[in-house]
């Protein structure tokens, strides 16, 4: 739990992040209904679309990351949250597989897609967005292609029940000081020679 930088109130520090996704996973998170009250008793929500924090804070216990990595901004946030989080959860199908966000990969590089969306299809003044919005990466990729992930929560969106189960298990492990239930390791035993 928080050691120094946190609020020091003994509560877990939980964050959420919204990368290239539709925010449906966050909506499902809000569907937790009264469990949100229990959760608030056990943890502080320190970052995410539901708070007004600008920079990713240090010393976070659990971060739920929604969305695929699709632009420069996503990438920076992904690195930052990995840097500062104990348990990163790939939250929902876009983060886990790329899902709908990655459908643009079928068109290859981003340019043809941008051309189609912003130039060919608008009725008036089609032009490519260039300023203010972060540049797209060549491919929209699942989160684990970029940073190591500790747990996966598939679903489009994952049901509130599934979110509750996951958070409860992870939080309990952290509170008890147990090893976090990790995503299954699946290399063969004799392949552990990399150490």
């Amino acid at each position: 739990m928080s050691n120094g930088n946190g609020a020091g109130n003994g509560k877990l520090r939980i964050a959420t992040a919204w990368l290239g996704g539709c925010s449906g996973c966050h909506m499902s998170f809000l569907d937790l209904d009264e469990f949100l009250v229990d959760l608030a008793g056990m943890a502080d929500l320190v970052f995410g679309p539901l708070t007004d924090t600008k920079a990713f804070p240090p010393d976070v216990d659990i971060t739920l990351v929604e969305g695929a990595v699709t632009n420069e901004d996503n990438r920076e946030l992904a690195f930052a949250l990995r840097e500062n989080t104990r348990v990163v959860v790939s939250f929902g199908d876009c983060a886990v597989t790329g899902n709908v966000t990655a459908l643009r990969n079928l068109l290859g590089e981003p340019e043809p897609m941008l051309q189609r969306v912003y130039v060919e299809h608008p009725d008036l003044d089609g032009q490519l967005p260039s300023e203010v919005v972060p540049a797209l990466l060549p491919m929209a990729e699942p989160l684990h292609e970029l940073i190591p992930i500790d747990a996966y929560m598939p679903g489009c969106p994952p049901s509130a029940e599934r979110i509750k189960t996951t958070i409860t298990a992870l939080a309990q492990a952290l509170i008890d000081g147990e090893p976090v239930p990790k995503a299954t390791e699946w290399l063969f035993p004799d392949e552990a020679r990399f150490g």
């Binding site: 790939s90 790329g98 996966y152 995503a183 299954t184």
Partner: peptide, 14 residues
Amino acid sequence: TDVDHIHYDLQHPD
């Protein structure tokens, strides 16, 4: 088979 994510490159076939 405990697949919770894909370790491999998605091929995005056309």
